[in-house]
C-alpha cells in the first residue's frame, strides 16, 4: 500500500504537480504514515530522479523548477506533523543565499535555493542586490554553514570577491564556506577568488553544498 503511494509521490514531483504532491502529503497524514518516511522514501526519490535526468541533459530547467516547487509544497504540508512529533527532517546544513550588490538577477539563485531546500538544507534567501555586510550579518545570525552568492553580470561578479575578502578579514573562514555561481562564473574565477565551491547548475550546487558540509553522497 505505502509502496504504491511512495511511487505516486515521486511521480508527482517528477511531473512538477504541486497540487498532486500536496494532496498526497495530506493523504499520508490521514493514513498516519511517518512524515519523514513520506519525504525520504516518496518525494525525495522524485527530486533525485529529475535531478539526475537534468544532469544527463534529459530534463529541462522548467521541469526542475516545477519539481522543486512541488517538493517545497509537499514538505510545507508535512512540516506541522513533524513538529507535532517533535521531530524534524534532518537538516543538511544552513545556507544563506543572495544575489550580490548591484545585481538584481535571481532566477538561477532562487532555483538553487529551491533545490537546496528540496534536498534538506535550511535556506535563507535574502533576495537580490545584497551588500556584503547584510549577507555576512545574516550568516552569523542563523549560524550558517554556507554562504551562496550569485551574479549574472560581468560587472557585478567582482562583488563575490569582496564578500570573501570581508569574511577573511573577520576570520570567519573556514567556519563559513562560500559557494559562487551565475552565468559568467567560471572555474577560473572560482579559483581566483578562492571560494570553496562552484557549480554550473542547481543540481551541481546541491552536490557541492553536500560536500562542503561533509554530507556528500556515497
Amino acid at each position: 500500500m505505502s509502496e504504491e503511494l511512495y511511487k505516486e509521490m515521486a511521480q508527482s514531483i517528477i511531473e512538477g504537480d504541486s497540487d498532486k504532491s500536496v494532496e498526497l502529503a495530506k493523504k499520508s497524514i490521514e493514513l498516519q504514515m511517518h512524515p519523514l518516511d513520506t519525504i525520504t522514501k516518496g518525494f525525495v526519490v522524485g527530486v533525485n530522479y529529475i535531478g539526475d535526468q537534468f544532469g544527463k541533459g534529459e530534463a529541462f530547467l522548467p521541469e526542475l523548477v516545477m519539481a522543486g516547487e512541488a517538493m517545497k509544497a509537499a514538505v510545507a504540508t508535512l512540516e506541522p506533523e513533524l513538529m507535532k512529533l517533535g521531530e524534524s527532517r534532518e537538516v543538511m546544513g544552513r545556507v544563506v543565499l543572495a544575489t550580490v550588490e548591484g545585481d538584481i538577477h535571481e532566477i538561477g539563485k532562487t532555483l538553487v535555493g529551491t533545490m537546496l531546500s528540496a534536498s534538506g538544507f535550511e535556506v535563507y534567501d535574502l533576495g537580490v542586490d545584497q551588500p556584503a555586510e547584510k549577507i555576512i550579518g545574516k550568516a552569523l545570525e542563523v549560524d550558517a554553514h554556507i554562504i551562496g552568492m550569485s551574479a549574472l553580470l560581468t560587472t557585478t561578479m567582482v562583488r563575490q570577491r569582496e564578500v570573501i575578502e570581508e569574511l577573511d578579514k573577520e576570520g570567519l573562514r573556514p567556519r563559513i564556506k562560500v559557494m559562487v555561481g551565475g552565468a559568467p562564473i567560471t572555474k577560473d574565477w572560482f579559483q581566483k577568488i578562492k571560494a570553496d565551491g562552484y557549480s554550473e547548475d542547481a543540481i551541481g550546487a546541491v552536490k557541492i553544498a553536500k560536500q562542503l558540509v561533509g554530507k556528500a553522497d556515497a
Binding site: G16, F60, L61, P62, V65, M66, I107, L111
Partner: peptide, 29 residues
C-alpha cells in the same frame, strides 16, 4: 519568472528545436 509555469513546459518542446549535436554548453563542460 516563467521557469516554473506549466505554460512553459507545455510549449517548450514545440517552440524549441532541441539540438543534439550543436554545442550549447559552457567552456568548462
Amino acid at each position: 519568472n516563467f521557469l516554473g509555469q506549466k505554460h512553459t513546459m507545455k510549449h517548450l518542446r514545440t517552440e524549441l528545436h532541441l539540438t543534439t549535436l550543436a554545442e550549447r554548453n559552457t567552456w568548462e563542460a
